[in-house]
Design a protein around this nucleic acid. Structure first.
Lengths: 147, 147
DNA sequence: TAAACTAATTATAAGGATTATAAAGTAATA
DNA sequence: TATTACTTTATAATCCTTATAATTAGTTTA
């Protein structure tokens, strides 16, 4: 069961999709629902596998297509880490990610957004800055114990 | 011609390789030299193509192999941006990167390293933090004019 | 220096993630 | 209902990167 908060997030997300003229298909809804309720930051393949039971004929391209739609609208953020698969994060509030270098676990980390960095970069480089990304790497408590 | 500063950097890099027990082959030296003198942040393929003239038989695997060696020693940083190719940055001083969302240009940006962020993340998450990465995105002056 | 050993390079194949394509299906609109 | 546009599916293709095996080249030891 989902709590009230998540329920509203899902409804809000559906509304934003509708307002953007995007159809709410069963597959699309399922991908969105999975992301909103996900505590982790799943890969496209993880989403695909999780929905296999419900949609045995769903194509992996459908997952990617919908993730792209969500990303373009700004509902979802794509986290890219080199050659490994991208991970997808339902964009609730602005936060950063702390990543375990041993097991790959990703933990949300709230920190005041670094506006100062952006404005300085704008001054120094002449770019029109739109956003930044930051990730913090280390070893998580579980892995510290294990090793 | 390279200026005095670059010359020393190349020498220093070769020294560090030797001290790590890494052989200095012609191909390896050429990749290293290209990186040290590169003003940009080349991809593996760009390095490969740039050295085609000097080493017509060089394999692209050699470029990747050497980049991995350099990275493991800490001479070079690998910049990963999702599904596009990695870019490689000869690690001189610590700095961040400002990336143009239109043309892909990467500009170095010096900013005091965000120690505060790391220490707070350590406190909040319980991770042992080793490092962080940050990139700033926007539109470069050239692309602003063009469009 | 010659022989033996180890590392590096080459050429090629294979892998994995993502995207492109075309056909079929489904929803929206007139 | 007919038309249109969007979406899904199935499959192939693409691109970046790594693995493999054979060859070459550098290093060390006798």
């Amino acid at each position: 069961m989902h709590d009230h908060h998540e329920h509203n997030e899902l409804q809000d997300a559906v509304e934003r999709l509708k307002q953007s003229g995007v159809r709410i298909t069963p597959q699309r809804f399922a991908v969105l629902e999975f992301l909103v309720n996900a505590k982790s930051h799943p890969t496209a393949d993880e989403i695909y596998k999780a929905l296999e039971g419900k949609f045995p004929n769903m194509s992996v391209a459908t997952v990617y297509n919908n993730l792209r739609v969500f990303r373009e609208i700004g509902l979802v953020k794509e986290l890219t880490y080199g050659d490994a698969s991208s991970r997808f994060d339902y964009a609730t509030s602005k936060h950063y990610h702390v990543i375990c270098e041993s097991c790959g676990k990703i933990v949300d980390f709230h920190y005041p957004t670094l506006d100062e960095v952006e404005s300085l970069a704008e001054k120094v480089t002449g770019f029109s800055i739109s956003h930044h990304r930051m990730e913090i790497y280390g070893i998580c408590p579980d892995c510290k114990v294990t090793h």
